[in-house]
Amino acid sequence: MEYKSDEQRLLVKCRRGDRTAFEEVYNKYTRIVYRHAYHLLGSGDEADDVMQETFVRAYRSFPEFRGDCSIHTWLLKVAGNLCRDRIKQRVRRGDVPLNLDTHYEELTPDAWEQNPAVTVEREDMHRMIYRVLDGLPAAQREMIVLRDLDELSYQEIAEVIGCTVAGVKLRLFRARKSLRTRMEALLQG
């Protein structure tokens, strides 16, 4: 059978339950899904769980996948839903996901801007990032992650989120504004 693209070949085979084709999908997208979950959750272990769960769900749901979007964005959508569930669970349980006991009181905006790479150690940077992201509403965090960390196009984000490109731009603007405000608040102590 002739396939228009490699994507279509994988899609057709996975819908039929071809495990070899699914393994191809896994190998192709596993890092992307893991990275997305990691940025949203800020934890390697949780990202790992979400990644596996995403592929289990994808395997089961492939026959219903209509191919309205690419496999890439579909997997990110599934992973995003799972991450959102986990974030909700955290909030319900009152969990603090990360060890954020760092010393940002010493960090001033000027120092940050002059030389961020030197000012903050690598691990501190990680904590800072997720401290800022963790303070954002889940939907805004997802927008920042999709655009600025996963580097998806507006169209791809629209497929993941399920809205228009114009809607994506508006949401992204709001999310970045919140990020900026949140960061200012953190830096000012």
Partner: peptide, 14 residues
């Protein structure tokens, strides 16, 4: 100024 800081942070994360 604050946008630049946020952008740098995100770039570093990326």
């Amino acid at each position: 100024h604050s946008t630049r800081s946020a952008h740098q942070l995100i770039s570093a994360a990326r």
